[in-house]
Design a protein around this nucleic acid. Structure first.
Lengths: 342, 342
DNA sequence: ATTACAAGTGTAAGCGCTTACATCGACCTA
DNA sequence: TAGGTCGATGTAAGCGCTTACACTTGTAAT
């Protein structure tokens, strides 16, 4: 090799005076090579600045040590944070992360799944479980292990996540305990988004148990933006009777709602209570601080990585790993006003 | 091939009654094959469910259609957002994104650069320009095109970003115009972080022009967290004379400072002015809303993708693409108190 | 008719690596 | 000492693809 071409296994082998097989073993199974030889080889590796070629390695070993993640968007703190810890954990296992985003669209997700498959990923991380059967089937056919995260999924498949339904129900019970009876909800768009749907269902179920019929619980679905949260909150406040507590599908919606409340001169929580979900940074920064559900996204990412790696290595894995959530009581939930607006 | 092994080019070639070369051409340069042949081949591809093998392709063609990005962390809205649009743009060009994080450590960045190189990426996106020459040298040797983003860099290399120095200076002038003379700064850790360093220098330079000597401008470096921002702000407020305006290296630090201010019963901006940098969501949500510098992270990501693709294709590119920033005047900057604490 | 050329296709040589199998000693056992 | 075992290393056959080059044929120019 000269100064300008990448050194190859062969170059290293020649430099160290061994065969390419030995160099390969030094790199992949160091304990199968005796120490002095190994050192000689490693020195040569160092000296030449050798790094293995990905294509060659992938071709010969039929593995890429690459893992794909397809998330709705990184532009949402919860996924960004989860992805960050996922990537770090992966990196500890010597895997690299291929990232694609679906923008919450199942069709786009499907495309990206195919891209990932074409890339020869060893495994794929997906978000949630709501997707066309054909996407799942595709992955199965290809024999690519995959994992749903951020939710616990249905009958089959592997999942690591939390129980969105139960968490939402728990928070709702807390709202009910404060004495609220006129609840309302601003949920995420639930179509093909099981997290949003589960949270909505959780709220409804808990309310129902308290004798509040579904048709007595107004629900607006909104995209996860401040603006849409604010708009939905406005609509809700125009209702008569006016809800005394608004449960939001995530913190972004909740903060949007709070901004609108201020605009409408409604005090939180004196005039109306608001709750969120996720406990992103935002939640601790608004005034009053947001009562919400804490979701350990970092732990999620890590657990997902560990689980996916096991799946790839065909080690035994639990079908579902549940990450516990916790309600964070802060300042936006209080008792309903004594004399609520009719 | 049978039901269980992936079809190869050879299988397709046999099925279509052509050579592998022709199949390969059908896939990579369709116009070099006559239509009837092409159709026959495509039919066979379809029938067998053939998808090219990534390893083989990478090995033979010496390119992967993969681009790497090494950022400090996704757990910072600005990078997450930029990365999101970078990825989307890349995807439009048929490239996939490999993500790694450095945690602001040049050593870790170097490692990841090597991983990326080993992965055979066609190009790499890096953040900023502050890194050991050896890292740059490595990339050069390997002939891997790379691009620094979020800043405009120095003598050589390609950059797409904004002028952190000028933006910080502009904001500082605005603070000075309000009548402030006792400035202070909470900057990011500037070691090997040119963005942080440039912002700091920008503030200092503008202050100096207004006759404020460097030693009259206290600066504390802090990690980009609420806690560190709060702590630094506490220290600054204990100074005598107390600063009347605190310029922060980013919005996270600024919000941390605002929280501390509330704790200390200092009103913003009546008792003390605070400014941020980046204009992340947080900035519009705190009370009062944060006066800060808007950085178009989405445009950044997109521009970076376009530029890197050109670099990869060896098309002509400008050495530096500057993305304009804008000062967003909101509620945390006001005139200094009439009777400032000595 | 001959020649030159171009377009369509085939042939076959790798790309850099892993790994099954072969080889070679060193060491043990009877 | 012969035979057996085992651990360390070497040999070499691919992995699936791209592509330089060769070949064949049809067409246009002479």
């Amino acid at each position: 090799m000269n100064e300008f071409t990448k050194p190859t296994l062969d170059d290293v082998a020649r430099a160290a005076g061994v065969s390419t097989a030995t160099v390969s073993r030094c790199l992949n199974a160091p304990d199968r090579v005796i120490a002095p030889t190994r050192e000689r080889v490693m020195l040569a590796v160092e000296a030449l600045g050798y790094t293995p070629d990905f294509g060659g390695r992938a071709l010969a070993s039929r593995r890429t040590n690459t893992v794909g993640a397809i998330i709705p968007t990184m532009d949402n703190a919860i996924f960004a944070r989860g992805l960050q810890s996922f990537q770090e954990a992966l990196s500890r296992f010597g895997k690299t992360l291929l990232v694609a985003s679906s923008g919450y669209s199942p069709a786009r997700e499907r495309e990206q799944i195919e891209v990932m498959a074409g890339r020869g990923v060893d495994g794929v991380l997906l978000i949630g479980s709501a997707r066309p059967e054909s996407s799942v089937e595709f992955l199965r056919r290809r024999g690519i292990p995959f994992l749903g995260a951020w939710n616990l999924g249905g009958e089959d498949g592997y999942f690591v996540g939390f129980d969105n339904h139960a968490a939402a129900a728990g928070l709702t019970r807390m709202v009910l305990d404060q004495g609220h009876r006129r609840l309302a909800m601003i949920g995420g768009i639930s179509h093909m988004n099981d997290r949003a749907a589960d949270r909505m269902e959780g709220v409804r179920a808990a309310a129902e148990l308290a004798g509040i019929r579904r048709d007595q619980l107004p629900v607006i679905e909104a995209a996860y933006t401040f603006e849409d949260g604010a708009r939905a909150f406005g609509e809700l406040m125009a209702l008569s009777p006016r809800p005394t507590a608004v449960l939001c599908g995530n913190d972004v919606l909740a903060v949007g709602a709070m901004q609108k409340a201020r605009e409408l001169d409604l005090r939180v929580p004196e005039d109306v209570s608001i709750t969120g979900f996720d406990d992103i940074d935002l939640a601790g920064v608004v005034d009053p601080k947001l009562t919400t559900v804490r979701v350990p996204h970092l732990r999620m990412g890590e657990a997902a990585a560990e689980m996916l790696i096991k799946l790839i290595n065909k080690e035994p894995v639990e079908r579902r790993v549940e990450i516990p959530t916790a309600i964070v009581e802060r300042g936006t939930l209080g008792p309903p006003p004594a004399d609520p607006v009719a």
